[in-house]
Nucleic acid binder design. Structure first.
Length: 590
RNA sequence: GGUCACGUAGCUCAGUCGGAUAGAGCAAUUGUCUUCUAAGCAGUUGGUCGCAGGUUCGAAUCCUGCCGUGAUCACCA
């Protein structure tokens, strides 16, 4: 479907060309700002040089020409250097019908090919927290946006299930747990393992303090502490494939996966594919061989492998230690190559925090140097930290907002808010609980996704997440109102649909509605769901304004009533679909 | 120190290719429910768009410098 802007554009170009005999101009055409009346605006200032006439003359000439030639234009008026066009009621009537066609909602992307999106790369030594939630919501939302545009998307996560930090939880469990399991402790698996990660840190810190008291220097004490010695021993056992260690590792990880799965489900996110670092961490070595052959990498005297990126303004970067073991970036080289070999993917998006920007710049650059044709189709969707009023969240110090706790809390707050309003007397208890969940999570997700990904979020648990104003529940409430209208309207409400006299509220709603596809496109292209949030809010606000001022079901003119009802239902449809991209469900009643 | 990002109302944030009087929400406050759901709507209060230059018909937006905040510059991940 073409927007009004696209439909009017040729007439404006034609007018300028006809009136000035200059064809190579770029016209500034845009939807009219809502505080002015009109649908489409042409900015006249840039035309001063071409026409060499006063603005009023230019505006009047172009306006008259367009009014004469473009059938959808009813009138034009000039405000300073801005030429605003109004459309006919007949045009709006057809516009609403166009907006109800399916192809309006399922537009095709010009880009073809499968997209892989990586998000959520958790460690298996502790439960998920608010920082992960931002990552999950961003990645999932971007994936849904691209899917809606007809692209095939593979959602993937890589689980960091090995290494020294995993051994810490294992060691502490062996020493302190007395065989505790999720069943015996009635603790979610990831929380149980996290408990022992904290227990390790506590015991380790005490050992360091004791050693320092005996006169050891801090750095020395950190190495010499028995807990640390034992953890390294455990890691060596793991790497050697010691049966008992591997069995414990499997067992504890399986607890964590069950816990993660519950959190993912409640949050409403999923994956098409899951990779485990224990399977992929050796993959990079083959790439290193290739790079050495191609002379992209080089050996140092001690046998370690490096790449020299000083030409691009980076340093020399280590890729393989002298003992032949991989570092972080080696693994990432390997997984990237493997993904493109294993799947027919066109591009790859990594949803990872801003603290790894440098890492991804280097990673992409190395892959480009290696000559992979897809290397310039790798993107880092970088996002800012979630901070608390007390500062950064730190797992080790226990200053994190736990994902599960937060969702429980959101549910509770939604419950008490809803009960205070007391509108739900007739609903069944299960329906009520489900509604509290929808509202609580809606508020949380909206709150997180509202912020531009590249900006930091300051999250104040005490101030909690709002339910009024620019919030998830506001959008949900708007939708529930529309559903209520629908159920109260009689079934034959559409029968009277015909051209009728329209007011400003209807027109501004249509103006916003028709921008929906562009808004979704733009949001996806920029990997920025907050743009969808902005759009949804604009639409909901405009709808509520309309709802407040126009009596939809009781309009005197039956054709007007039919038009307004259809308009309302279209708003509802757009709101529901757009919110789905944010992972937010809409209640029929609240 | 180098590189990158950010700095807009008391607070949290919009403001995309430079365009009209810089917008929302929260908080404070005033109206508004016998009328389609008041989680709404309307109003009041609140701004040196970090600072200083530059580009231009026009700058919150682009350029330069400075100040502030954060991230990063590991044989950690």
């Amino acid at each position: 479907m073409k927007t009004t802007l696209e439909r009017l554009k040729p007439f404006l170009y034609e007018a300028v060309q006809h009136l000035s005999s200059v064809s190579l101009v770029k016209l500034d055409i845009r939807p009219t700002r809502k505080e002015f009346s009109g649908h489409i605006t042409l900015v006249l200032f840039p035309l001063l040089k071409i026409f060499k006439k006063p603005l009023e003359h230019i505006g009047r000439e172009i306006g008259s020409y367009v009014k004469e030639h473009a059938p959808m234009v009813r009138s034009f008026h000039l405000v300073k250097g801005f030429l605003n066009f109004e459309c006919t009621d007949d045009y709006y009537f057809r516009l609403l019908q166009d907006l109800c066609e399916d192809d309006f909602f399922f537009q095709k992307s010009s880009l073809k090919g499968t997209l892989m999106i990586e998000y959520s790369s958790p460690n298996t030594n502790k439960p998920l927290h608010l920082g992960h939630i931002r990552n999950h919501l961003l990645g999932h939302s971007i994936a849904e946006l691209f899917k809606s545009m007809g692209r095939k998307v593979i959602k993937t996560q890589i689980i960091n299930d090995r290494g020294i930090h995993i051994c810490k939880s294992m060691l502490a469990w062996k020493k302190f747990s007395g065989g505790e399991t999720p069943e015996s402790s009635n603790l979610k698996g990831d929380h149980l393992v996290g408990k022992y990660y904290v227990a390790f840190e506590k015991a380790y810190r005490k050992e360091i303090a004791d050693l320092c008291a005996q006169g050891y220097k801090r750095v020395r004490a950190e190495e010499k502490a028995p807990m640390m010695q034992e953890v390294h021993k455990l890691l060596r056992l793991w790497e050697r494939g010691d049966a008992e260690t591997i069995a414990l590792w499997r067992r504890m990880n399986s607890w964590v996966y069950q816990g993660f799965e519950q959190t993912y489900q409640r949050l409403g996110i999923d994956f098409d594919d899951t990779q485990y670092e224990s399977n992929t961490y050796l993959l990079g070595k083959r790439i290193i061989e290739e790079g050495l052959k191609k002379k992209v990498f080089f050996h140092k005297e001690d046998g370690s492998v490096w790449v020299d990126l000083t030409a691009e303004g980076f340093d020399e970067k280590l890729l393989l230690r002298k003992d032949g073991t991989s570092v972080y970036i080696t693994q990432d080289l390997g997984t990237a190559v493997e993904r493109f070999e294993k799947y027919p993917i066109e591009a790859l998006i990594y949803t990872v925090g801003e603290e790894q920007e440098y890492h991804f710049q280097v990673l992409f650059l190395i892959l480009k140097r290696m000559g992979y044709p897809w290397a310039d189709r790798l993107f880092h969707l970088s996002y800012g930290m979630v901070e608390l009023p007390s500062g950064k969240m730190k797992s080790r110090e226990g200053t994190v907002v736990d994902a599960d706790d937060l969702m429980i809390q959101m549910h509770q707050v939604a419950k008490s808010f809803t009960q205070d309003l007391g509108k739900l007397k007739d609903s069944a208890p299960e329906e009520k609980e489900s509604l509290y969940e929808t509202i609580g999570l809606g508020a949380l997700k909206y709150h997180i996704l509202k912020v531009d990904p590249k900006k930091r979020i300051l999250f104040d648990p005490k101030a909690s997440v709002d339910f009024k104003g620019n919030t998830g529940p506001y959008i949900q409430y708007t939708y529930a109102r529309i559903r209520s209208l629908e159920s109260k309207a009689c079934g034959n409400a559409y029968e009277n649909l015909s051209v009728c006299l329209l007011g400003e509220y209807e027109k501004s709603l249509l103006k916003i509605l028709e921008q929906y596809p562009d808004s979704i496109n733009f949001s996806a292209k920029n990997l920025n769901p907050s743009l969808v949030v902005n759009y949804v809010y604009e639409l909901a606000k405009s709808f509520n304004d309309f709802y407040q001022n126009v009596n939809i079901l009781k309009a005197h003119d039956p054709s007007k009533a039919a038009f307004c009802l259809k308009l309302a239902l279209t708003c509802g449809k757009v709101l529901k679909i757009a919110m789905k991209f944010l992972g937010i469900n809409m209640p029929d009643n609240m």
